[in-house]
Each structure stands twice: as structure tokens, then as C-alpha cells.
Design a protein around this nucleic acid. Structure first.
Lengths: 338, 338
DNA sequence: CTGTTAGCGCGTTCAG
DNA sequence: CTGAACGCGCTAACAG
């Protein structure tokens, strides 16, 4: 059996209340007694039972706030699935997960939602941060106030936080490069489509792809890097336009609304080796019908799940997370799903 | 706030004890009252709080037994990592995980270990089953006695159990085939190395590989399927021997002791496209040094972890698992890890 | 058959 | 500064 507060109290010759105060630095306790209790606890290898603790603090009604941006998006839809899974898992511990939506890429609205969350008494904040000075300074402020904030599925250049969950963007760029290199046989022309470069990770990914190709000195020529808008029709239109304009392109790395992108690629008529990011239903069927070659999944659901669990662990057992949690880039061929 | 037994007791006009008996079918209760309580509970959307439940049943000292076979093996070493992770996670719930080792591929010893586990009062059993009639009948018997047994990392042809956690063997064969097809450019000679065919999954995997190549009508020729022994020196010797005997082989799918296999492949001197199963440290460095092309990981740690969690969920919330839990086959190129 | 109550381990009053 | 006691939601033992 594991050792409890009571056990410690017994050998220390004090009451459980005193032990509790000592171990949790609650003050109102004689420094020497506190020290003695702590060493005894360490000797006995005490670990607080998080299950019991959760039951006890359940009436404090802790809530974890999640402030998203970008809606109606395949990727973030899955992120929310992960959020919900975590929510179900921690419900019995008396901790609630509350999601605040804000308008796409709107820093003012995001700031407002963060404030809402704080006013609602959030014990922790999960944020998909928008790059904007107001957001940055708000994060810094919250940090000073002791509120743990974790970044989800996006990172800010040069802004630190409690912890950040995201995929390894440079790596995801390199993997795509390797795949294209392999599928194309190492020669041909490639075009990259990427979402908004206002997001740091997207810039990193493309840079890393370019570097790989350059270092490899392969005969793969990078024709153009195209930045996509955030709507599916615009994505479709631009993708098709570019592929028609640059008729030599026979390799594509596509990150954006997969459904629109795949449609454009098919429509342009010629055979194009394609790597898409993320594994939406559209990507799945494109894979099955051999319209694309491989999907690179960035585990959106797991990102959502882990962000919540980081705060959960912190709230229930003071566990300090790594400053950066990288989720895997999964490589998905047709054979992985059929 | 969520609804508790007390809440139900209040509206049903009975005591919590009665509610508990009704919801858990403990008997010693008026059938009508029980029925009424159950409908009220359903109406109020009651869900038992597993945290509170765990705290309460902690003194029953439930333990989950794990009976392994095959030791000193990279794959099962990682399986045990997963087991330990799960163990740490459920410790606070008062449930213990106890591992019983048995001699490699020894059905009599495995049977003995199972009996040990049962005598120790295991509340659930996780088993890496050996194909043998004695084991099969023991499993059937335990099942009838109501002990949940879950298969881990291996399955028995035609024997059902509470749940089974393993990778999708046919799929893993197909994925390897696709990769070899892609890397080789669709032509050349391939040799397959596999562990003991006494394990059903290994047979499935190879069959599936062969079928893919046949269906594809590619110019890839399957030269030979080699069954490997369970020791690293034998593996090395046989692999090298075979590769020397069949000098035309320029593609290898290798499942076995990676360290030995990779050494043999290097030693044979010629350039061979190689796909290995599982992601041991040996596979990792071989990947980084470009000695092999890709590793297919079968998530051993996750398999161990999930097997425990299935029984945990069952023991704490009566949750019935899917009869088969498939873990992913991860495709790992050098770029995924460097 | 049913109600009451004492824990499970921890946090939090409230007296002293 | 410290101890005692109660409650979180549920199980189980004991009374009735």
C-alpha cells in the first residue's frame, strides 16, 4: 500500500492537517516542524494521491478555458474532437473544459475572449495564439499573474508560455520533401501551397522544405511558393490558376483546404504527384481513389487532447510540463487505410 | 454539477444504499423499487463518478495480471514500457499491475504462470498467448469463470477473448509491400525475413505482402520467405547466408532482431533496399546512417498501455471494450527522427 | 428487503 | 501555530 498523509502524521507525531500544511507550503506552520515533516515525507517516498485530491477539490469547480480561432476548418474541427475527449476523461475529476470561439484571425476578438475566460475564473488557459502585439502582451501579463497558458497548434516567435503543443513544423517540411523526392524519382518541378504566412509554423515548414531540396542538390526544381487564402473557394481558384499557369509543375505539396485543393489538382488534368497535409475525410477519399499519393497528418485531435491534459496534470498534481510538446507527423499512404 | 447517488435517492425517496444496489444489480432489493430507481437514474442522466468509485474500492486491492512470453526482445521490452506507463497512471486508483514472465515459447510454463496469476486473485488477465491447445482451453475456461482476458500483441486463430490488442498484421504487410515497390521503383528481387510462423499474425503479414505483389503484377520478384530463429546470432547467420546465396536480392523486408539483421545486410556488401519492422534503437541508428530505408513501427508501448487501460476501464466503469483494438503501423523515414 | 454509517485520501474549515 | 472534524461520491458492512 502507498503511504498517506495519515501515515506521515503518525510517524511525525503531528496531525494530518499539519502534514498537509507542510507539504503544500500553506504557511501558518512552524518552520522547523514543516521541514521535519517534509523530510519524513521524502523518506517515506510519499506521493499525493491525485484521485483523492480530485475528489476533495471538486467543489472548487476548476475550469480550463480554451480560446480558439479559425473555425469551419477541417484541422480545428479535429482539434475540438481531441478537446472533447479530454473533457470526458477529466469530468469525473471535477474539472470542466470550456471552449471560447472567436472570429477567424481577429486579434481584438481573441483578446476579448481571453478576457471573458479570465473573468469566468479559468484556472488555466489554452490558446491558439494570433500573432499580434496585443495578444503577446496579454499573454505576458497573464503569465505574471500566475495563470498557466498553453499554446495549441500554433506558436509565437519569441513568446514563451507555460507549455506549447504543436507539430514539429520544420520536420514536417523535411518529411514532405523526402516523400516528394522519393515519389518523383528525384526530378521534376514542384509547387508548394501553404496557408497564411502570418503563422510562424507555416513559415518554418516551407523554409525547411526548401532547405532540404537545396541541400540534397537534387534535380527537383521548386517553381513557386503560393500562399492560400482562408476560404475554400479562393483556395480552389488560386490553386487551379497556378497549376495552369505553370504547366511544367508535376509535383505538389499542398497545405490548406484539402477538398478544394484536390479538386483543383484533378481539374488541371495532368498527373501530379501530391502530398497533402492533414488527414481530413477529403484527403482520405483522395488517397483511396489514387488522386493523391500521401497524406501527412499532424495529429490535430491529439494536440487538443494533450493541451488539456497538460493543464489537468498541473492542476491536479502541480506537474510542470515540458515547455514544448511535439506531436508526431504521421505518414499515410493508401495502404494505411484501405 | 453532475448528478450523484444522493440526488437520485432524494427524488426516488429511498436511501443511497438502495440506489447503489439498484444500479449495480447487487440483489437484496425489491424488483419494482430497483426498476423505478433505474429509470429515474436514466432520466436524470446519471453517470457514476469513477474517481469516487476508485477511492471507495481501493481497499479491495484489485490487480491486473500480465503474462508475457518472449523475453530479451526489443519489441517486448517496449511493450513493458507501455505496461509501466499504464501502471503509473492507475496506481492512484488503487489498481496494481503485476507482470508474470515465462520462458520463451513454452506453453507449459505459460499455463503455470496463468495459474499463478489466478491464484494471486487477479481481477483481469493480459496475455501474450502461445498457440497451444492447453492454453486455448485454459482461456476458454477462464472466460466461463468470468475473468476478463485480453490478448496482447498476438492473436490466436479462432479463439475469442474479452478483447485483443495488436497491430493490423495484414495491413502491415501491405504497407511494407507498397514501400518496397516505391523505393525499388517497382522492379528487382525481394526476400522476406520473418519471425516464427507459429504466430498467426506473422503468417498473416507475409501472406498479405505476397498478395499485394501478386495483385499489383509488378516486376518485383519474391525470391524467398525465410523464417528466423528467436536468437540474435542465429538471425545474423541465417540472414547473411541467405543474402549470399541469393545474390540477386536487392530488396529486403526484415522482421526480427533488427540489430542482427542490419549487421548481416551491411556485411553482405551490396546495396539493398530495406524495410524493417519495429523501431528499436538499432533501427533508429541504421535509419540515421542510411543503412535502411524505412522502419515500420507497430507501437509496442502503446499496445501494452492500451491492454492495461482496457481492463482498467472495465474494472472501474464496467466499460465493455471492442473485441479487437488495432494500433497503428507507423512509417518512419530518416527525416522523421533526425 | 432497506436505511445508516464508516471509511477511501485529501482539502478545508473551525476551534483552540 | 496546530488538531479535530467534516465533506467530495461511492462501496460495503451492519442494523433493522
Amino acid at each position: 500500500m502507498s503511504v498517506t498523509l495519515k501515515d506521515i502524521a503518525l510517524v511525525a507525531g503531528v496531525s494530518v492537517g499539519t502534514v498537509d500544511r507542510a507539504l503544500n507550503n500553506r504557511g501558518r506552520i512552524n518552520a522547523e516542524v514543516a521541514e521535519r515533516v517534509r523530510t519524513i515525507a521524502k523518506q517515506m517516498n510519499y506521493r499525493t494521491n491525485t484521485v483523492a485530491k480530485s475528489l476533495a477539490i471538486r467543489n472548487k469547480n476548476l475550469t480550463i478555458a480554451v480560446v480558439l480561432h479559425v473555425q469551419q476548418n477541417e484541422f480545428f474541427g479535429e482539434v475540438e474532437d481531441g478537446l472533447r475527449r479530454a473533457q470526458n476523461e477529466i469530468r469525473d475529476f471535477g474539472i470542466t473544459v470550456k471552449v471560447y470561439h472567436c472570429r477567424d484571425f481577429d486579434p481584438a476578438d481573441q483578446l476579448a475572449q481571453i478576457n471573458n475566460a479570465v473573468e469566468d475564473g479559468a484556472a488555466g488557459l489554452i490558446l491558439v495564439p494570433i500573432e499580434h502585439p496585443d495578444i503577446t502582451s496579454k499573454i505576458t501579463q497573464l503569465k505574471q499573474e500566475g495563470l498557466p497558458v498553453v499554446f495549441l497548434a500554433a506558436l509565437l516567435d519569441n513568446v514563451s508560455c507555460f507549455s506549447a503543443v504543436h507539430c514539429d513544423y520544420p520536420r514536417s517540411g523535411r518529411i514532405a520533401a523526402r516523400l516528394i523526392d522519393m515519389i518523383s524519382g528525384g526530378h521534376g518541378s514542384v509547387m508548394i501551397f501553404s496557408p497564411s504566412f502570418t503563422m510562424f509554423g507555416h513559415r518554418q515548414r516551407v523554409e525547411s522544405f526548401v532547405k532540404y531540396i537545396a541541400d540534397k542538390k537534387s534535380e527537383l526544381h521548386l517553381i513557386k511558393i503560393v500562399e492560400l487564402p482562408n476560404d475554400s473557394f479562393g483556395t480552389y481558384r488560386i490553386t487551379l490558376e497556378q497549376l495552369r499557369e505553370y504547366a511544367q509543375v508535376d509535383n505538389v505539396v499542398f497545405c490548406g483546404n484539402t477538398e478544394a485543393g484536390v479538386r483543383a489538382i484533378e481539374e488541371c488534368g495532368r498527373k501530379i504527384n501530391t502530398v497533402v497535409y492533414d488527414f481530413s475525410p477529403a484527403a482520405k477519399s483522395a488517397l483511396l481513389e489514387n488522386h493523391i499519393d500521401v497524406a501527412l497528418q499532424q495529429s490535430p485531435a491529439e494536440q487538443g487532447y494533450r493541451a488539456v491534459m497538460i493543464l489537468f496534470d498541473y492542476l491536479t498534481s502541480k506537474k510542470i510540463p515540458a515547455s514544448e510538446i511535439l506531436v508526431e507527423n504521421k505518414i499515410i499512404f493508401k495502404e494505411c487505410i484501405d
